[in-house]
């Protein structure tokens, strides 16, 4: 289980795979005002990235994975409306 919700925070943990996109979308469709915590995330499948992009999820946390922390999180932050 790499996606879990606690209150208004959704935790993305470990490797997030293509099937996790469905879970995430379901959560995001329920409550749009959520924060996505990626601090313990190891990788994000493109389908998950795309869902975050579509629902304009607010990202917090600095993942240790280089590609994720250096490129993906900033790229998602770039497109999110303030």
């Amino acid at each position: 289980m790499s996606i879990s919700a606690v209150g208004d925070v959704i935790y993305l943990q470990g490797p997030c795979r293509v099937e996790d996109a469905e879970t995430l979308v379901a959560l995001l469709q329920k409550s749009r005002k959520v924060t996505l915590d990626v601090s313990t995330c190891e990788s994000l499948h493109a389908a998950v990235v795309q869902a975050i992009l579509a629902f304009e999820g607010q990202i917090v946390g600095a993942p240790t994975n280089g590609f994720l922390g250096e490129f993906v999180v900033p790229a998602l932050g770039r497109t999110i409306q303030p």
Partner: peptide
């Protein structure tokens, strides 16, 4: 977004 399909790729990288 209510009809969002998580498995259709709609990305440009």
């Amino acid at each position: 977004l209510a009809r969002y399909d998580p498995f259709t790729c709609n990305l440009v990288i």
